[in-house]
Amino acid sequence: MVNFEFYDKHNMVAYLKKPSGSEGFQEIVDFLNGSHIRYAVTTNPTIYVYLIKKFWQIATVKIVDNGEQEITATVDGK
């Protein structure tokens, strides 16, 4: 049986509000609030250590032409 240990470092949520002292970030907050990625940065899913380790067992990292790293993995046949 797998031990589904909770990994809190991957469960961080963004709060897309405009408190005082955040001048200069207003446009970024507006963009994120109006974007389709808003859900991804404001939802708090449960992510388990087992699943992270399983992903990295099947993932490969290679350096592409521009020098950046690319991660490739097959998950559920895709």
Rank of each mutant, 00 (worst) to 15 (best):
M1L: 10
M1Q: 09
V2P: 15
V2Q: 07
N3F: 04
F4Q: 10
F4V: 13
F4T: 04
E5R: 08
E5L: 01
E5D: 09
E5N: 02
F6G: 00
F6V: 13
F6N: 13
Y7C: 12
Y7D: 06
D8L: 13
D8Q: 14
K9I: 02
K9N: 13
K9T: 06
K9Y: 02
N11E: 14
M12V: 13
M12S: 07
A14L: 06
A14C: 11
A14M: 13
A14E: 10
Y15M: 09
Y15H: 13
L16H: 04
K18M: 15
K18P: 09
K18Q: 10
K18V: 05
K18H: 08
P19G: 11
P19Q: 07
S20I: 06
S20V: 05
G21C: 00
G21K: 08
G21W: 05
S22G: 08
E23K: 07
E23S: 11
E23W: 13
F25C: 12
F25A: 09
Q26Y: 14
Q26T: 15
E27F: 03
E27Q: 15
I28T: 14
I28V: 15
I28S: 12
V29G: 05
V29R: 04
D30H: 05
D30Y: 09
D30M: 05
L32R: 09
L32G: 06
L32Q: 06
L32T: 10
N33L: 14
N33C: 13
N33G: 06
S35W: 03
S35K: 07
S35R: 04
H36I: 15
I37L: 15
R38Q: 14
Y39N: 05
A40Q: 08
A40R: 10
V41F: 10
V41D: 00
T42V: 05
T42I: 08
T42C: 15
T43R: 08
T43F: 01
N44E: 05
P45I: 00
I47Q: 12
Y48I: 01
Y50N: 14
Y50Q: 05
L51T: 11
I52S: 10
I52R: 15
K53W: 07
K53Y: 04
K54C: 06
F55R: 03
F55S: 03
F55H: 04
W56R: 15
Q57N: 13
I58V: 12
I58A: 11
I58S: 09
I58M: 00
A59P: 05
A59V: 03
T60W: 00
T60K: 02
V61A: 01
K62A: 04
K62F: 01
I63V: 13
I63M: 03
I63T: 12
I63S: 01
V64N: 11
D65I: 01
D65W: 01
N66R: 02
N66G: 09
G67H: 02
E68V: 03
Q69E: 02
Q69L: 03
E70M: 04
E70K: 02
I71H: 05
T72D: 01
A73M: 11
T74E: 13
T74I: 13
V75F: 05
V75A: 07
D76Y: 14
G77C: 11
G77L: 01
K78L: 10
K78A: 01
